[in-house]
Amino acid sequence: MTNNLKISNPTQSDMASACNLFEASISDAFEKEGLGLLIDDIQKEIEHKKHLLHTSLNLADSDTYFLVAKINRAIVGTISFGPCGEDIRSCTENQLDDVGELGSVYVLPSYQGQGVGSALIKDMATYLKQQGIDQFCLDSGYKRAQKRWLRKFGEPYKVVKDYWGPNSVHMVWLCKVTDFID
């Protein structure tokens, strides 16, 4: 585990640092998946995450809740919880529409593999339990993330072949909150 890791709610003053994190980690994820040439898709994903964070900070009744991980006041990771997204609705034929989605789990490439993502998931699970929420879903089409999520979350609830095109797989997990709290 990385020393000096602090997890908190983001503030307006965190917006620029969080946006830099989205740009670096999403670009890196696409590159490592062999999709670095999909510039429009990368930019669309970055802008979507920026919009979610901006909305969560600026709307009192936002349905998305964010946490950020900081080391020495610099944001090194993010996680969110909100309504189930379109990919999950589509992949599950709307079976999980009433289950909230764990999303925006991004960690700066230089901090990956050091427990930042696990700490974010644990803190988010603790928050969800306090809110009376007993399960969440999440999804991924990234092969590298799928390997990590298979180890962390076990067998997926749903696997959709060719979702993003030939030879692509999209996975959806349904998890119990209490499985991620000490």
Rank of each mutant, 00 (worst) to 15 (best):
G85L: 07
L59T: 13
A69S: 11
I133F: 05
V68Q: 00
S118H: 06
G117R: 01
Q95I: 03
A125G: 00
H54E: 12
I39M: 08
K44L: 11
L37Q: 13
T64F: 14
F66Q: 01
G34W: 04
S62I: 04
G77S: 01
D28M: 01
L67M: 14
T55E: 14
D41R: 09
S62H: 03
G103D: 14
H54Q: 11
E45N: 13
Q112I: 08
E93V: 08
K49G: 06
E33R: 00
L37A: 09
D98K: 10
A125E: 00
T64C: 12
T55F: 11
D123L: 09
G82K: 08
F30T: 04
L108G: 06
V68K: 00
D134M: 10
I75H: 02
I46T: 04
I133R: 11
D61R: 07
T55P: 02
L37R: 09
L53C: 08
D87A: 12
T55V: 11
Q131R: 15
F81A: 13
N58G: 07
L102M: 15
S110I: 09
F136I: 05
L53D: 05
S56E: 02
A145E: 08
S56R: 06
E45Q: 15
Q43R: 11
H48F: 14
K129P: 05
L128G: 02
A74C: 09
D28T: 05
Q146Y: 03
N94F: 09
E101F: 08
T92L: 08
I121R: 01
Q146N: 12
